[in-house]
Simulated scan of single mutants.
Amino acid sequence: MSNKIIIEPFKVTESHKNNQENKGLDFGFTLQTGKTDCPYLVNNKIKSRIDYLTIQFKCSDTEDFKSVRAKIEKWLKELRIRVTASKPSLKYFDSGVLLNSYDVDIQRCGSLKWKSNSRLLQLELTGFACELINMHSDYFFPLIEISKSISAEIKRIDIALDDKTGKYNIRFAQKRFSSGAFNAKTGAKPLKENIKSNSGRTMYIGSKRSNKQMVVYEKGKQLELPNNHTDFNNWTRHELRLKARSDAPIPLDILLKPDDYFVGSYPRVYQRMLKVAEPRNVTRETITRCGSFLSKKLKNLKRQYGSSITLAKQSMTDAEIIKEIERVNHKFQPSLPLTLLTK
């Protein structure tokens, strides 16, 4: 793949503004009154969402390091993300800690890593952590505020834009690829890989080693939504993955204008799509994901243990049965953050 796909800083294309529609949420979960995505995203009609972030802070001394780390940990705590005693993979770093959710058991949120000389601190935020950020009123503003006094550099960022009409699906991406719309300005065609699995089709455009890659996949099928669900066939996610390069840094402005950088990376493909796309709603997506998982598990529970529960109800209360059989899943499973639920 040509190393000239992105020249200078990543190109910015001004986004078009459409009105956002509020739609009902699936699966009957009750949210806090008026709960939606971050007001900054809603008010500015931003349609894409940041799904992953790695950012580094270059500190001048130990005091700077302590100050930056304290500010980051305070912000994480407000997001219901806790610092653990567990260690992450420490390639290129001397020490670090894993980040988990306060509300969701065994849910990785990323890591904090640093050099022993206290000059470099790296914050990695996973997709789940970014979900919490996209729903929180503070958004990424605390990181932007820190960067005003401490040198900050984004090393990697993922931005996702969704289509739920079925128009901008994998077939659309394939056609645009074949027509050369994903090509570099030099005309070089990027690598392409198609993968098909039980969770749907995925199309990779660009090398994993490149500083820019687009991943298009069938989100409704990945979430294992019911076949008759509206989004099962029509929900397609277009996910831009950017990595910083010495000659192509990723500006911090991307945190505030993800739409512009998303389109700017492949303007011939996504300029039209951004105009007509519905804004992503992380709050609704979280409800949908967890509701789909719960629905599937309850069906399995009824099939495998329904008769046993019926027998238990003859001599036990519902509360006693639940206490007897419930347990924490020590592997990953979708869960609702407590911040989404009414008390």
Rank of each mutant, 00 (worst) to 15 (best):
M1L: 04
E8R: 01
P9V: 02
K11N: 08
V12A: 10
N18I: 12
N22W: 10
K23W: 04
D26C: 00
D26S: 05
G28Y: 12
I46N: 09
K47N: 09
Y52Q: 07
K58M: 10
S60V: 14
T62N: 15
D64E: 15
A70Q: 08
L79C: 04
R82K: 00
V83T: 15
K87H: 05
S89K: 10
S101R: 14
S101V: 13
D103I: 04
G110V: 10
L123Q: 07
E124T: 15
L125E: 04
A129G: 11
Y139W: 15
F140D: 03
S151C: 06
I154V: 03
D162M: 14
D162L: 13
G166L: 10
Y168N: 09
N169Q: 01
F172Y: 15
F182D: 07
K189M: 02
E193T: 07
K196G: 10
K208E: 14
Y217H: 00
K219E: 02
L225F: 01
L225M: 07
F232D: 00
L240P: 11
L240H: 10
R245P: 00
P249D: 02
D253I: 03
L255S: 00
K257W: 05
F262I: 06
F262K: 01
R268S: 15
V269P: 10
M273V: 13
K275A: 09
A277R: 01
T283P: 04
R289Y: 08
K296W: 09
K297E: 14
S308W: 04
I321Q: 00
I322P: 05
V328L: 14
K331L: 07
T339C: 13
L341G: 07
T342R: 05
T342W: 04
K343G: 01
